[in-house]
Each structure stands twice: as structure tokens, then as C-alpha cells.
């Protein structure tokens, strides 16, 4: 039987490799709070086949702020479609929606 150390080593190595090969997407949503924002945004993501792997939502002063990490490596649509559709729904809801690669933040804020 494999020891725990070996299993965790394999899993971690695979996870890190996956990180390298499949850059994740960060979707940031900013705007005035109201009921149903998450439902509307996630519906768009589900429709395009994106997988939400992390999500964080808070009310920042009076600002609704939500950040999501998406894995779109198995999605049916390319990144450009995600960006387009998410920005469109953002406009409809009166929210600022930004979709960009996670590397932007990692590089800028982490040594």
C-alpha cells in the first residue's frame, strides 16, 4: 500500500502541473448590491461550461464584490466567449464584470 506521503506528493505534483498547464480565469464582479447577482452570473458560466473552483463574495463598504476562480480547460467555449458573455450580463445588470487570466494577479502581487 502506498504511504500517505507518496500519495500526497503525487497529488500535489499533479495539481501544480495542472496549474501550470491550465491557467485559471478570475472573474471579478463589482457594483451595487441587490438580490440574485450570483445566480445570474453563475448561470452564464454554467451555460458556457466553466467550472467554478473557488468563490468569494463580500459587501465591501456598500460595494458588492465577488471574485471567482474558473477552470475553463474543459469548457465547450473559448476564453473570449466567456469574457464577452460575462461583460454583456454585467452591462445588463449595471455591474462591472472583469474576466482575466489569474497570472496577472499572481505576477503583480506575489514575489
Amino acid at each position: 500500500m502506498k504511504k500517505w506521503e507518496d500519495i500526497s506528493k503525487d497529488v500535489l505534483a499533479q495539481a501544480l502541473n495542472d496549474e501550470e498547464e491550465n491557467p485559471k480565469i478570475i472573474v471579478s464582479v463589482l457594483g451595487k448590491d441587490r438580490v440574485g447577482i450570483i445566480a445570474e452570473i453563475t448561470a452564464v458560466i454554467a451555460k458556457l461550461g466553466g467550472n467554478i473552483i473557488d468563490i468569494n463574495q463580500t459587501i465591501f463598504r456598500e460595494l458588492f464584490s465577488m471574485n471567482m476562480v474558473l477552470d475553463i480547460s474543459r469548457a465547450s467555449e473559448p476564453f473570449s466567449r466567456f469574457k464577452e458573455e460575462l461583460e454583456k450580463i454585467g452591462e445588463e445588470l449595471g455591474l462591472k464584470v472583469v474576466a482575466q487570466r489569474e497570472d496577472t494577479f499572481i505576477k503583480m502581487h506575489r514575489v
Binding site: 485559471k24 478570475i26 471579478s28 463589482l30 473557488d54 468569494n56 463580500t58 465591501f60 464584490s65 471574485n67 476562480v69 462591472k96 472583469v98 489569474e102 496577472t104 494577479f105 499572481i106 503583480m108 502581487h109
Partner: peptide, 13 residues
């Protein structure tokens, strides 16, 4: 969260 809200907001700003 892998990237903090603060870092994301700072970049967007």
C-alpha cells in the same frame, strides 16, 4: 481564496 479580494480590487483600480 487563491488571490485576495484586496489584490484583485487593487489591480482593477
Amino acid at each position: 481564496m487563491r488571490i485576495t479580494t484586496r489584490e484583485i480590487l487593487e489591480t482593477i483600480k
